[in-house]
Computed example of a mutant assay.
Amino acid sequence: MKDREVLKLVGSRIRVLRKEKGLSQESLGEKGGFHFSYIGQIERGEKNVSLLNLAKIAEALEVNLIQLFAYIDEGFEATPLDESIQEVVSMLREANEEKARLARNVLREIVKGNTSI
């Protein structure tokens, strides 16, 4: 994978997380201590952002640093199913342990076919 591709993938992931949180580039920049144009450059893969700045962005997005690298592989077109799965994962990351366990059990039953919606 080329350097520029990595920057674009991480930038794209930041954009997805920012939009999931309902934040503008300006509001994310304010939360992280950056100018909104810097956030735009990162999202477009134009800036080679430092690890420390990535940590600040993750904190501003209220996600774990590793979530910035949980992007879909290049060349892979996201389907509506992929988007639904990503939404479920995002909700589970915000849930407490008890709610996450309950959701797992419900999903297990749905996938097994024991429950219909």
Rank of each mutant, 00 (worst) to 15 (best):
1 M>Y: 03
1 M>R: 05
1 M>D: 07
2 K>I: 05
3 D>V: 08
4 R>I: 13
4 R>W: 06
5 E>I: 03
8 K>C: 00
8 K>H: 02
8 K>T: 01
9 L>V: 01
9 L>M: 10
9 L>C: 03
10 V>W: 00
11 G>M: 09
11 G>F: 10
13 R>G: 00
13 R>W: 00
14 I>R: 05
15 R>Q: 11
18 R>Y: 05
18 R>M: 04
19 K>A: 05
20 E>P: 02
21 K>C: 05
22 G>C: 07
26 E>C: 05
26 E>D: 14
27 S>N: 13
27 S>P: 01
29 G>K: 04
30 E>P: 06
30 E>A: 13
31 K>Q: 09
31 K>P: 06
32 G>A: 15
33 G>C: 08
34 F>H: 04
35 H>P: 02
35 H>K: 10
36 F>T: 09
36 F>W: 12
36 F>Y: 13
38 Y>R: 07
39 I>G: 06
39 I>P: 04
41 Q>N: 11
42 I>P: 02
45 G>T: 07
46 E>N: 12
46 E>S: 12
47 K>D: 00
47 K>L: 08
48 N>I: 06
49 V>E: 01
49 V>Q: 02
50 S>N: 05
51 L>C: 04
53 N>H: 07
53 N>D: 11
54 L>V: 04
54 L>C: 05
59 E>S: 14
59 E>W: 01
59 E>H: 12
60 A>I: 07
60 A>R: 06
61 L>K: 07
61 L>F: 09
62 E>H: 12
64 N>V: 03
65 L>K: 06
65 L>F: 14
65 L>I: 13
65 L>G: 01
66 I>C: 02
68 L>G: 02
69 F>P: 05
69 F>T: 03
70 A>M: 09
71 Y>R: 00
71 Y>Q: 01
71 Y>V: 00
73 D>A: 08
75 G>K: 03
75 G>V: 04
76 F>N: 03
76 F>P: 01
79 T>G: 01
79 T>Q: 01
80 P>H: 08
80 P>M: 02
80 P>Q: 11
81 L>M: 12
82 D>M: 01
84 S>P: 05
84 S>D: 14
86 Q>T: 02
87 E>R: 15
87 E>C: 03
88 V>T: 11
89 V>S: 06
89 V>P: 02
89 V>F: 08
90 S>I: 06
90 S>Q: 10
91 M>A: 15
91 M>I: 15
92 L>G: 09
93 R>D: 14
93 R>E: 12
93 R>S: 08
94 E>Q: 14
95 A>G: 01
95 A>H: 09
96 N>K: 07
97 E>L: 06
98 E>Q: 11
99 K>S: 11
99 K>P: 00
100 A>V: 03
100 A>S: 14
100 A>Q: 09
101 R>I: 06
101 R>E: 13
103 A>M: 12
103 A>D: 04
104 R>N: 13
104 R>P: 01
104 R>C: 15
106 V>P: 04
106 V>M: 13
108 R>T: 14
108 R>P: 02
110 I>M: 14
111 V>K: 13
111 V>H: 11
111 V>Y: 13
112 K>F: 03
114 N>C: 03
114 N>W: 08
114 N>R: 14
115 T>H: 11
116 S>W: 09
116 S>D: 11
117 I>F: 13
117 I>H: 06
